[in-house]
Design a protein around this nucleic acid. Structure first.
Lengths: 240, 240
DNA sequence: ACCTGAACACCGTTCAAGT
DNA sequence: ACCTGAACACCGTTCAAGT
C-alpha cells in the first residue's frame, strides 16, 4: 500500500477517446448541442484542439459517438425476463429510449441528424436489434419482422423527438414555469387559432392540455401493437 | 400597353421576406442545410447581410419559415373528396408529407430541430390539423382524437426522417450508386454484424435489401390504422 | 505516439452610415 | 423604411513544432 502512490487521487488521466466522448455527453446534457464547442471541450479537458483531433476525426464523429454511447446505455437495461406478456417487452424497450431522450434532450435532434449523416451505422442496428427481439417474441411471422419493427422504431423516434421538444421548451420558460403551465400556454395558443383553418386543432386543445407525455407515448405503442397482433390473428402478412 | 414598361423583364424586384424564404428553400434543396449561409444568400439576392436581417430576425427564423412554407405547400394538396375509404384520407396526407421530405431532404432534420426550438408554433398545428381531420372522418370517438392523431403524426415524422436519411445517403454515394446499390451495401453491413450481439438485425438484413421505402411507410400507416379501427369496433377509448 | 497552440477560413450577427 | 458593407466575436479545423 505504501509502494502504490495513492490511486484515489483525482485521476487527471491521459486523454482518450472515451474520456472525450464522456465529457462531450456532460457538456451536451448541461448546455445542449449549441453549448458543445471545441473551446469548451479543450478547457474542460485541459488541452488544445489538436489533442482532441488526434482521437476524434471531427465534430460530427464526436456527436455520433456521444449518441451511440447514450443509446447503448439506454438499451443495455434489459427488460425483465418475466414481464406480464410479450407486449411488455416492446413497451420496456420503448420506454428505455423514451427516458433516455427525456434525460438527454439533445438526443432527439441528434438521432434525426445522425441517421441522416451516417445512417445505418451503429445506432440504428442497436435500436433495431432491441425492438426486433421483442417483436420476435410477440409471435410475428418472420416475413413481417422488418415491417413491424420498422413501424415501431419510426414511431418511437418520432414520438421521442416531439416529446424532447416539449421538455426542452418547458425548461426555457424559466424556473417557475413547469410542464403544466407550458402545456397550458400552448393549449391556449391552439384555442386562439383561426376557426376556419384549424377547427380540429382547436377541438383537441383541451386534450393537449390534459395529456401526459408518457401515457400518450405508451398509448401509441399500444395502438401499433394492436395493429400487429390483429395481423397475427388474421394470419396475413403485414403489408400496405 | 405602351404606357406599362415591359413587366416581363426579369423581375429583380425589391427584397422581401417572401423572396428571401423562397431563395433559402432553393439553396437548401440544392446544397442542403450546410449550404445555406448568409454569404450564399447575399450573393444570390445581390445584397448585404444587413438587408436580410431587416426582413428576418436570424437564421433560425429563416429556417423555420422555409420549413413552414414547404410543409404548407405539401399539405395544401387536398386529398380527393371521394377516395375509396376514409382510411385513404390518412394515407393521402401521410404520403404528401412523405413526398415533401423526399423532395426536400433537409426537411426531416429541420422538422426535428424546429419542433425542438419553437415547437407547437406553426408547423405542428398545420400537420396536426391535416391528419386530425382524416382521423375524425375515420369515426374515432372524440375522446381519442388526440391520441390517434398524435400516434399517426409521430409515426409520420419518425418514418419520414429515417427515409430522408436513406435518400440523402444514396446521393452521397455518387451518381452511379443508385438506391438499390445503397441498400445492398447496408444490407451486407448488417449481415456482417456480430452474430451474438445482432442476431435479429442479421436475420432481417435481406428484408432490408428488398424493401421499398414507400411501401414500407404505408405498411406502418396501415398498422396504426388497424390499431385505431380495432379500438373503434371494440368501442373502447384508445389509451395505454 | 501523442500533444501544443498559433493560425486560417468561415460563419452568424451587428451597426453606423447612407438613401 | 429599407439597404450597404465593414467589422466583430466565435467556430471547426489544420499543422508545424515539440516530447
Amino acid at each position: 500500500m505504501a509502494t502504490r502512490t495513492r490511486r484515489s487521487q483525482r485521476r487527471t488521466e491521459a486523454l482518450s477517446r472515451e474520456r472525450i466522448v464522456e465529457t462531450a455527453v456532460e457538456v451536451l446534457d448541461a448546455s445542449g448541442e449549441g453549448g458543445l464547442t471545441f473551446r469548451v471541450l479543450t478547457e474542460r479537458l485541459a488541452t488544445g484542439p489538436g489533442a482532441i483531433y488526434w482521437h476524434v476525426a471531427n465534430k460530427g464523429e464526436l456527436l455520433d459517438a456521444a449518441t451511440d454511447a447514450v443509446v447503448a446505455a439506454a438499451l443495455a437495461i434489459e427488460p425483465a425476463e418475466d414481464t406480464d406478456g410479450p407486449q411488455d417487452g416492446v413497451r420496456a424497450v420503448a420506454l428505455g429510449l423514451f427516458d433516455a431522450i427525456e434525460e438527454h434532450p439533445w438526443l432527439a435532434t441528434q438521432l434525426a441528424t445522425q441517421l441522416a449523416r451516417s445512417p445505418w451505422q451503429t445506432v440504428t442496428p442497436r435500436i433495431f436489434e432491441s425492438v426486433g427481439r421483442q417483436v420476435q417474441a410477440l409471435g410475428v411471422a418472420q416475413g413481417s419482422w422488418f415491417t413491424a419493427t420498422s413501424a415501431l422504431v419510426h414511431y418511437i423516434l418520432g414520438a421521442a423527438g416531439q416529446n424532447a421538444a416539449n421538455t426542452a421548451s418547458g425548461r426555457d420558460l424559466g424556473p417557475d414555469a413547469d410542464r403544466g403551465e407550458f402545456l397550458d400556454g400552448v393549449s391556449r395558443a391552439w384555442e386562439g387559432l383561426d376557426p376556419d383553418e384549424f377547427p380540429f386543432t382547436r377541438a383537441v386543445a383541451d386534450q393537449l392540455r390534459d395529456h401526459d407525455d408518457r401515457e400518450q407515448f405508451l398509448a401509441g405503442i399500444t395502438l401499433i401493437l394492436a395493429g400487429i397482433t390483429e395481423g397475427i390473428t388474421a394470419g396475413r402478412p403485414l403489408s400496405a
